[in-house]
Amino acid sequence: MTRPLELDELDWRRVSPKYVIVDIVGLVVSGLVACVATAVPAFTTKLVWLWSAPVVVAIGFIVVLFLTPRRVRSIGYILRADDLLFRRGLLFQRFVAVPYGRMQLVDINRGPVARALGLSELKFVTAAASSGVTIPGLPAAEADELRDRLVALAESRRAGL
């Protein structure tokens, strides 16, 4: 009975599987930082029960780490006739539909790890800050092509604010 959200569109374009690596590296780094930060009280006070904090954080990160491939597979987008449809998330699902005419600008960002793997992140910015459409893990050529396509689509459907 507990079905997740699903739309009738079946032809989701998925992001590159290599993005799993980028995500894992990011998670490991932030997990280590979080563990060290939560371990500081235990380290300074020598109270044994305080060690539970970094342990809980570490377990949490490891669980998230194992779910990474599925989470990356859950990211998808479709260029429909008039709008861009975007989805992500397994446990916390999120679907967004943005009409092309609402585009204010498109960003392409590349972090160090992503660049090493030849991936880019495409950010679709509207006048609403909360739209938050960020498609990570696109192969660089595909991201550039998608950006040009989005700009062209937005230009042909230019709308006011």
Binding site: P4, F92, F95, V96, P99, A127, A128
Partner: peptide, 8 residues
């Protein structure tokens, strides 16, 4: 500007 749906 856009529409979204969420589910936790």
């Amino acid at each position: 500007q856009s529409v979204a749906m969420h589910q936790g």
